[in-house]
Amino acid sequence: MATTEAPTFVARPSKPKLKLPRGACDTHVHVFGPGARFPYDPGRATVPADAPKEALFALHDYLGIERCVVVHTAAHGFDNAATADALAARRGSYRGVALAPTTISDAKLKALDAAGFCGVRFHYMPHLKTGASIEDVIAFGRQLAPLGWHLQIHMHADRIAELAPAIHRAPVPVVIDHMGRIDASLGLDQPNFQALLRLLDDRNVWVKVSGCDRATRQGPPYADAVPFARKLVAEAGDRALWGLDWPHPNHRGPIPDDGQLVDLIAEMAPSDGARRALLVDNPQRLYRFSTRE
Rank of each mutant, 00 (worst) to 15 (best):
R44A: 15
L99P: 00
T102A: 10
A184E: 03
Q152D: 09
A145D: 10
V70Q: 02
I255F: 02
S210C: 03
V175W: 04
A98T: 06
Y124D: 01
D213R: 02
P221V: 04
D281Y: 07
V70A: 09
P146R: 10
A229C: 03
D79I: 02
A277W: 12
R275D: 09
R142I: 00
L199C: 06
A82M: 09
G131L: 11
L200R: 07
I182H: 06
T291G: 15
D202C: 11
A2Y: 01
L197F: 04
H76F: 00
P39D: 05
G219M: 06
P48G: 10
T27D: 05
V97T: 13
W149P: 06
G96D: 06
I182P: 06
I138S: 06
R230N: 04
T27A: 09
L261P: 00
F140G: 01
A81F: 13
A88H: 09
A11K: 11
T3V: 07
A170K: 10
A195G: 07
K17C: 10
F140A: 01
K129N: 14
Y62M: 14
R12M: 05
P16L: 13
V233W: 03
P171Y: 01
A111M: 05
D272Q: 12
I134S: 07
Q152L: 11
D202M: 10
T4N: 07
V10E: 14
P52H: 03
R292C: 05
V97I: 14
H248Y: 06
G243D: 02
D158V: 13
P13S: 07
I160W: 04
L163S: 01
E5C: 12
V172F: 11
I153V: 12
V233F: 09
R198C: 07
P283N: 10
H76T: 04
T102R: 03
P39G: 05
P171W: 00
I255Y: 01
P220D: 08
A145W: 06
A88S: 15
E267F: 04
C68N: 13
H60T: 03
R203I: 06
P146I: 10
C25G: 09
R217V: 08
L99Q: 02
V205H: 03
G253N: 12
G64N: 08
L232H: 05
D26P: 09
L188T: 04
F117I: 10
R292Q: 13
P270K: 14
N192D: 15
L197I: 09
D257T: 07
Q218C: 04
K231N: 08
L56I: 14
A86T: 15
P173G: 12
V262T: 01
V47T: 15
H127K: 13
L112A: 02
G219Y: 01
G43Q: 08
A107M: 05
G148E: 08
H251I: 07
V226W: 00
D257S: 04
A86G: 15
F32A: 00
S271V: 04
A223F: 09
I176P: 04
S93P: 01
H154Q: 14
A223I: 04
G33H: 00
N80P: 08
L112E: 04
V137G: 01
A170G: 12
E66S: 14
R159A: 09
A55Y: 15
P165T: 11
Q190V: 09
D201E: 13
